[in-house]
């Protein structure tokens, strides 16, 4: 890309104006929303997931996710008796168009939807050199795309592969738990589009949230608990072979 002097003269003030907006920020847009009243998480009910890929498509439509990268994706596991620790896993195009039909076979199959785990002790925010990714007061891990350098250190630090560098914006990108929706009282696009209720947005600070009853009566696990990330995406009936 070459820039002529004339273009530069136009670009410089534009850059100054752009930076001014970074300095000042835009004012609060959801006046009825108090961040400290919420602590967001998500519940994934694995036995309910049918691998239709609705969540992946909804996410891409809602969040302008670039092709080949995923804020959420679905994996299909196939575990047989002899390879309990070595499952066969596929996720063609993130499961966006569903999965190939599985014929009756030995072992078991199940689907595992994945997304950012909104970790309370998140390794990605720990390593960000400039504070461009952070845990908001309501527990959602966000990326400040006007401030991110695009160094990709956070991508390396995420144990779950939930982050990527946006190929056009050149900044880190990931699931925001549809922050622009949940702050307006809506659920996430993936939950809205899930036909079976396999994904449920949950607010741990809301005493009336059904998650509390669910957690009381089910065996719930997070991904890679040995990583001690304080993950807040809870999986019901998670198989031990899932990584």
């Amino acid at each position: 890309m070459t820039i002529t002097r004339r273009q530069l003269l136009i670009l410089l003030p534009a850059a100054a104006v752009a930076w001014e907006s970074v300095l000042a920020g835009t004012p609060e847009t959801s006046p009825n929303y108090t961040m400290t009243d919420h602590w967001w998480s998500m519940l994934i009910d694995i036995p309910k997931c049918i691998g239709c890929g609705n969540c992946v498509r909804a996410c891409q439509a809602e969040n302008d996710v670039p092709d080949g990268f995923f804020r959420t994706w679905v994996e299909r596991y196939h575990v047989d008796d002899w390879h309990l620790a070595n499952p066969q896993v596929i996720s063609p195009d993130g499961g966006k168009e569903g999965f190939p039909v599985a014929k009756e076979d030995e072992g078991k199959y199940f689907f595992v939807p994945k997304l950012c785990n909104q970790c309370a002790d998140s390794p990605c925010t720990q390593v960000c050199p400039v504070g461009a990714t952070f845990i908001a007061p309501d527990g959602v891990v966000l990326v400040d795309q006007k401030y991110c350098l695009g160094c990709a250190y956070c991508v390396q630090a995420c144990p779950y592969g939930c982050r990527y560098v946006h190929p056009q914006k050149k900044v880190a990108d990931k699931c925001t738990l549809c922050y622009h929706r949940i702050t307006k009282g809506l659920t996430t696009a993936c939950c809205e589009a899930c036909p079976t209720g396999a994904r449920q947005l949950a607010d741990l600070k809301n005493p009336n949230d059904p998650i509390h009853a669910f957690l009381k009566t089910h065996s719930v696990q997070v991904l890679k608990p040995q990583m001690a990330t304080g993950a807040k995406v809870f999986y019901n009936a998670l198989d031990g072979s899932v990584r």
Partner: peptide, 28 residues
């Protein structure tokens, strides 16, 4: 940036900017 450090080691204004993204799914 002026809002840096408002809530923690990040630009506080970023939260409102992310919250201001347009929605595509209207909700049932």
């Amino acid at each position: 940036p002026r809002s840096f450090g408002q809530y923690g080691h990040y630009r506080g204004a970023a939260i409102a900017e992310i919250a201001a993204h347009p929605i595509h799914f209207a909700g049932h």
